[in-house]
Nucleic acid binder design. Structure first.
Ligand code: FES
Ligand code: FES
Lengths: 149, 149
DNA sequence: TAATTCTTGACTAATTCAATAGAGTTAGTC
DNA sequence: GACTAACTCTATTGAATTAGTCAAGAATTA
């Protein structure tokens, strides 16, 4: 019932990159600094996101990471699933799990946990990085028209 | 985003006791056997539930545990909070947490996680053991009018 | 070529989780 | 009143996961 540091870090890093969309690569250090994430740890997470096709990168001077797709085509669900696995609260309601629950036949909770699963999946799968950026904008000083780098 | 074995075991044990409501104490062994839970582990969980006022117990021969209240006055949320803590996916949306999130001012995810929190809490807090028993009944053989002990 | 930045895999410390163990207490039964 | 079924409490363990660190290397640009 909880998002790991991995999921937390990865989502916030993605917000940072979404805010910077179409403004060239953003180096790991910049993301880590602004979002207060340990650099050496963030390295690993960005690599996972890259391998999954959500990010692209450029090495060397002026290099860094950037989104592989527009922010409105990346959902929070994609990031969380990658980092924390499926949002099912228990394996017996995880569509991806093939194990059969030994007490399924007498358990009244399966449908409860399934409701929870659907509720969570519904939220994270409909929320895109674009939405997240809008929400972040609303938090900034009313005067600040754009995101400060 | 997941229920621990502790929460899983505790909820299933409570279902078992709810099914047996008003039929005298149910010994730990009986619960553990039917629900396939390690006996010595279940002992600890039932004690926690007892200390929280959800269960009462009777020692000695013919002793065991029984619900302290009718099944419709015990919610799944009470059990889960006891075992797995608050259903908030991250501390910054946990009303009980007093720590301030260091990136709150620039984070677009707070409201997303809060939606998740509300959704989960809404489900587990409105679902009672009575509901769970009904759901379990529906799973049993259509012919079986009552719960087999 | 030198500086910068990503890439990769290995490694470790700390914590949590799930379970086990054992000694003790209470309540009925015969 | 001994015997036994059953709950009570604390401690300990082993495995797994989590969170984070480290070192060496490869690509890019100035
Ligand atoms: S625990 Fe698996 S169906 Fe309830
Ligand atoms: S991580 Fe705390 S507000 Fe987003």
């Amino acid at each position: 019932m909880r998002i790991s540091a991995k999921g937390d870090y990865a989502t916030r890093a993605m917000q940072e990159l979404a805010m910077h969309y179409n403004r060239g690569p953003l180096p790991i250090e910049a993301i880590a600094g602004r979002q207060q994430i340990p650099v050496r740890y963030l390295e690993q997470l960005l690599l996972i996101l890259k391998r999954a096709g959500l990010l692209e990168s450029k090495r060397g001077v002026k290099g860094g990471y950037y989104l592989a797709k527009p922010p409105n085509q990346i959902t929070v669900g994609q990031i969380i699933r990658l980092m924390d696995g499926p949002p099912a609260p228990i394996f017996c309601v995880d569509p991806a799990s093939h194990d059969k629950c030994p007490v399924e036949a007498i358990c009244g909770f399966q449908s409860v946990w399934d409701e929870v699963h659907q509720a969570v999946a519904g939220i994270i799968d409909k929320t895109t990085l674009e939405d997240v950026c809008h929400r972040a904008m609303l938090k900034l000083e009313p005067g600040a028209a754009t995101y400060r780098i």
